[in-house]
Design a protein around this nucleic acid. Sequence first.
DNA 1: TATCAATGTCAACTGTCTTTTACATTAAGG
DNA 2: CCTTAATGTAAAAGACAGTTGACATTGATA
Lengths: 68, 68
Amino acid sequence: MKNRLRVLRAERAWSQQDLAERLEVSRQSVNAIETGRYDPSLPLAFRIADLFDLAIEEIFHNPAKDDQ
Amino acid sequence: MKNRLRVLRAERAWSQQDLAERLEVSRQSVNAIETGRYDPSLPLAFRIADLFDLAIEEIFHNPAKDDQ
DNA sequence: TATCAATGTCAACTGTCTTTTACATTAAGG
DNA sequence: CCTTAATGTAAAAGACAGTTGACATTGATA
């Protein structure tokens, strides 16, 4: 599962801490998701998509699949 | 997190076991997701969306939000 | 150089997801 | 009735998600 979180965050010039506060998670969670250590839960993925006003599929994608 | 899994499955006349095999998860996982005991992981949500050829947002939605 | 913000990571912990095994209930068909 | 398929649920265990607290590194700047 890859994601564009770092790019989306950079476009807004937010720190990981900024993003964490908007998502109501810890800074470490944001970092772990950005660095690919683990995937967010489905509810958190929805919060992320809502925050950036994008579909989940526009932020996350499966590298095993050759789509997107 | 609510979902339309039961309806989508019924439209295809699949048993929970049938769906579980297509998703490569246990029947109990399908049942737990359908009955709302827990949400799938993000990777599983993608497999579900791929199987039904729908966006994740067309299958899952947040009852806390008044959209959809 | 000293400081500060931002980032990466680790350990330990709690809670969630998913599994296997198992058992109960219901509905349909012989 | 008896059997079978489908479904709901539970317990125990392992893997994963998310927390707090802590420490190290880097880059910018006073």
